[in-house]
C-alpha cells in the first residue's frame, strides 16, 4: 500500500515534470521570445557594450566634427554676407563716382565748346574787320579812279568843245585866235 502510494507520487511528480518541461518547451517555441528570461543577461550585456561604443564614437569623434563643420559653415556664410555687403557698398560708390565723372565730363565738354565758339567768333570778327577794311580801301580806290576818270572826261570834253568851237568859228569865216576861243569855252563850261 505504502509502496503503491510512493509509486503514484513518483508518477505524479514525473508527470508534473514532463508537463513543466513541455510548458517550458512551448514557451520557447510558441511564446514570446521577449519574455525568455534566459536571454536577458546576454542582451543587456551586449546592449551596454553597444551603447558605450556608440557613445564614445559619437562624443569623441563624430559630434565634435559635425559641430565644427556646422560652425565653420555658419562662419563662412556670415563672412560671405559681410563681404557681399562690402562689395555692394563699393559698387554703389563706384556708380556714384561714375555719375560724378559723367557730370564733370559734360561740364568740361560744354566749357570746351564755349571756348571754341568764342575763339571762332574772335577769328570771325577779325576776318570781318579785315574784309571790311579791304572793302573800304577798294571802295576808296575805286572812287578815286572814278574821280580821275570823271576829271579826265571833263578835260576831254573841254578840249573837244574848244576844238569844236574853233572849228565852228573857223567854218563861219571868222578868224579867231585860239586863245580867245579857249577862254570863251572855258567860261561857258564853268557857267
Amino acid at each position: 500500500m505504502a509502496n503503491t502510494t510512493t509509486e503514484a507520487a513518483g508518477a505524479v511528480t514525473e508527470v508534473a515534470g514532463h508537463a513543466a518541461e513541455a510548458g517550458g518547451h512551448a514557451a520557447q517555441s510558441a511564446g514570446m521570445p521577449q519574455l525568455n528570461w534566459e536571454t536577458f543577461p546576454n542582451q543587456i550585456f551586449w546592449l551596454v557594450v553597444a551603447l558605450v561604443l556608440i557613445y564614445l564614437i559619437l562624443s569623441k569623434v563624430a559630434l565634435p566634427r559635425i559641430g565644427g563643420i556646422l560652425a565653420d559653415r555658419q562662419g563662412a556664410i556670415t563672412n560671405d554676407i559681410a563681404a557681399a555687403e562690402e562689395l555692394k557698398a563699393k559698387a554703389v560708390e563706384a556708380e556714384k563716382a561714375y555719375n560724378q565723372a559723367l557730370i564733370d565730363a559734360r561740364e568740361e565738354a560744354n566749357k570746351i565748346v564755349a571756348e571754341a565758339r568764342a575763339e571762332i567768333q574772335k577769328d570771325l570778327d577779325k576776318a570781318t574787320a579785315k574784309a571790311d577794311a579791304e572793302i573800304a580801301a577798294k571802295t576808296a580806290e575805286s572812287a578815286k579812279r572814278i574821280e580821275e576818270i570823271r576829271a579826265g572826261a571833263a578835260k576831254n570834253v573841254e578840249e573837244v568843245a574848244r576844238d569844236a568851237a574853233a572849228a565852228i568859228v573857223d567854218t563861219m569865216g571868222v578868224k579867231a585866235d585860239a586863245k580867245t576861243v579857249a577862254g570863251a569855252v572855258t567860261a561857258r563850261l564853268k557857267g
Binding site: E38, T39, P41, N42, Q43, I44, F45, W46, L47, V49, A50, L53, I54, I57
Partner: peptide, 18 residues
Amino acid sequence: PIHWYTPTNATLWMGIAI
C-alpha cells in the same frame, strides 16, 4: 546555451547598427 557573454544574433545586429 546562451550565457551573458555568448555572441548572439542580438550581438550581430547591434554590431551592424554600430
